[in-house]
């Protein structure tokens, strides 16, 4: 059986690792945000796989739902910060964010 728990977990792992690399290597602030989304999504894939293939059941789906909602909230706040940063520095390059007092 191909489409089992293991396959879902592999997909989740790929998403997670891609997200981590994205967060680490991108210098564009919004690119870093996209990395975070990928990581959270990898976690969600795992939750859904556990919901289908283990006794975790409905709880896993509720966790996934909370992850999605909190990711949306996180994106909104982070985007507001990014906009603020851009207004102050006229760039979105996170390497330029090296001063505490902007």
């Amino acid at each position: 059986m191909i489409a089992g728990l293991q396959a879902y977990l592999l997909v989740g792992a790929v998403l997670f690792v891609c997200g981590v690399i994205c967060m680490a290597t991108k210098r564009n602030g919004i690119g870093v945000l996209m990395g975070v989304e990928l990581v959270l999504n990898g976690a969600n894939v795992n939750f859904i796989a556990f919901s289908k293939y283990t006794a975790l059941g409905l709880d896993a789906q509720i966790f996934a739902l909370f992850v999605i909602v909190l990711a949306a909230a996180e994106a909104a706040v982070a985007l507001a910060i990014a906009l603020n940063f851009y207004n102050n520095h006229l760039t979105i390059d996170v390497d330029k964010a090296n001063r505490l007092k902007g």
């Binding site: 997909v11 289908k52 789906q61 996934a64 990711a71 949306a72 994106a75």
Partner: peptide, 28 residues
């Protein structure tokens, strides 16, 4: 994939919140 794993509601929530909301916010 969520739809395939019998999680219809989570799949639809993923589409409407993540793709339809969060990502449009990001592109904005």
């Amino acid at each position: 994939l969520f739809f395939l794993a019998d999680a219809d509601f989570i799949g639809a929530a993923q589409l409407i919140i993540y793709v339809g909301g969060t990502l449009i916010l990001l592109v904005f």
